[in-house]
Amino acid sequence: MTERTAPEFTQIIHPWEINPEQRRELIECWTVVSNAGGAVVPLGFPPPPVGTEEVAPAVDELIAGLDPQRGRLLLATIEGDLAGWLVVRRDPHPFIAHWGELNHLQTHPRFRGRGIGTALMHRVQDLAREEMGLEQLHLAARAGMGLEEFYRRLGWREIGRWPGALRLAPGDDRDDILMVLTV
């Protein structure tokens, strides 16, 4: 594996398309990223450390929600290993069906610093526009992690904040930063 190996992308649009190895890798990635302090701990997870027993149900729920029109999983692999992933979702309500929401952008720690997150973000823009017919993408990012600068460099703009929305621990409240990108 070289530093310059570009990721290959796989899009999963139906629950039956994911194989057991991909499911296992998703669980492992989400567990490692959460335990390394990543900002991907969803509601329902206890504070880190987490294990398979907490993460597997969230992965299974994510997989069950895949649908070509409403939710897609984008995997980035390097030489067959899961390097990162994200989910793009569309709400079916007709007033907001022109925009999608990004969730769970993760890069496995052993692939950090290699542009995997950036590559996923560029690929999902094309997918959202060309395959899902979306015009905007939205996301929420945890303050205090440097994430807003990462997204700004990719063309996203902050549209608001929920002050103190996320309580990571007593005395550690973080803003939830709301961002948008026109695709």
Results as ranks from 00 to 15, higher is better:
residue 2 T to Y: 04
residue 2 T to I: 03
residue 4 R to L: 07
residue 6 A to H: 05
residue 6 A to L: 11
residue 11 Q to I: 15
residue 16 W to S: 12
residue 17 E to Q: 15
residue 19 N to M: 11
residue 21 E to F: 11
residue 31 T to S: 10
residue 32 V to W: 03
residue 32 V to G: 02
residue 37 G to S: 00
residue 41 V to P: 01
residue 42 P to V: 08
residue 46 P to Y: 01
residue 46 P to Q: 00
residue 48 P to V: 01
residue 52 T to L: 02
residue 55 V to S: 01
residue 56 A to Q: 13
residue 57 P to W: 02
residue 57 P to M: 06
residue 58 A to I: 11
residue 59 V to Y: 01
residue 59 V to F: 00
residue 62 L to A: 13
residue 69 Q to M: 06
residue 73 L to A: 08
residue 73 L to R: 10
residue 73 L to E: 05
residue 74 L to A: 04
residue 74 L to E: 06
residue 75 L to V: 14
residue 77 T to E: 14
residue 78 I to K: 03
residue 79 E to P: 09
residue 80 G to A: 11
residue 82 L to P: 02
residue 83 A to H: 10
residue 91 D to F: 03
residue 92 P to R: 05
residue 95 F to H: 11
residue 97 A to T: 12
residue 98 H to E: 01
residue 99 W to Y: 10
residue 103 N to M: 09
residue 105 L to R: 09
residue 107 T to L: 00
residue 107 T to F: 01
residue 108 H to G: 03
residue 108 H to M: 00
residue 108 H to V: 02
residue 108 H to K: 03
residue 109 P to M: 02
residue 112 R to C: 02
residue 117 G to N: 07
residue 119 A to W: 09
residue 120 L to A: 11
residue 121 M to R: 08
residue 125 Q to T: 14
residue 127 L to I: 15
residue 128 A to F: 11
residue 135 E to G: 15
residue 138 H to I: 09
residue 140 A to I: 15
residue 140 A to F: 02
residue 143 A to H: 09
residue 144 G to P: 03
residue 145 M to E: 03
residue 146 G to D: 03
residue 147 L to S: 06
residue 148 E to D: 05
residue 152 R to Y: 03
residue 154 L to Y: 00
residue 155 G to S: 07
residue 156 W to A: 01
residue 157 R to T: 12
residue 157 R to V: 14
residue 158 E to N: 13
residue 158 E to K: 12
residue 159 I to M: 13
residue 161 R to N: 07
residue 164 G to V: 03
residue 164 G to Y: 04
residue 167 R to V: 13
residue 168 L to N: 02
residue 169 A to R: 10
residue 170 P to Q: 09
residue 173 D to M: 08
residue 173 D to K: 09
residue 174 R to N: 05
residue 174 R to S: 11
residue 174 R to W: 00
residue 175 D to N: 07
residue 176 D to L: 15
residue 176 D to V: 08
residue 178 L to C: 11
residue 181 L to P: 04
residue 183 V to G: 00
